[in-house]
């Protein structure tokens, strides 16, 4: 049913996201784009060198996350999947929506599981994506 799927993760809810993605796959060929966004925004007065260090560490973390996604989706069992890794820098919600538009994906898969306190204090990427996504979204509910 879906030919191009965008799986966006920040490293949380990985097992649940992978499980739900695999559940909707059929025998038809499908392209899956694994996306990790390095959030580069830092508060005013953050030292420049510390910002560079943060971005380098987040890139490194993103690489590991995308590699583990690749390991799952590129296994021989999932012969129908053509997997691609994308690592971007910027605001996670904006980058997810922009990539979905540019790549014309059919479905975005995201995890969601923050409690109300965390949502108020940290914000919610999935809520922002829901409001401006150009396609269907599968929000994987996690505990």
């Amino acid at each position: 049913m879906y030919e191009k799927i965008l799986v966006a993760t920040m490293g949380e809810y990985m097992d649940d996201i992978i499980e739900h993605t695999l559940n909707i796959l059929t025998d038809n060929p499908v392209e899956i784009i694994g996306l990790y966004v390095v959030e580069t925004s830092v508060p005013f007065l953050t030292p420049k060198k510390v910002k560079e260090m943060m971005v380098a560490e987040l890139r490194s973390k993103g690489e590991e996350i995308l590699d583990s996604l690749a390991q799952e989706f590129q296994s021989p069992t999932h012969y129908m999947v053509n997997f691609r890794k994308v690592l971007l820098e910027g605001s996670p919600a904006d980058e997810i929506v922009n990539l979905a538009e540019n790549e014309k994906v059919d479905l975005i898969i995201l995890g969601t599981g923050k409690n109300i306190v965390d949502k108020k204090l940290l914000g919610s990427v999935s809520e922002k994506v829901v409001h401006s996504a150009p396609c269907t979204i599968l929000l994987v509910r996690t505990s």
Partner: peptide
């Protein structure tokens, strides 16, 4: 070992 050179990595300065 992993030969993963897709992206620059490492927590250090350039």
């Amino acid at each position: 070992k992993d030969n993963k050179d897709d992206y620059p990595s490492g927590v250090q300065f350039k």
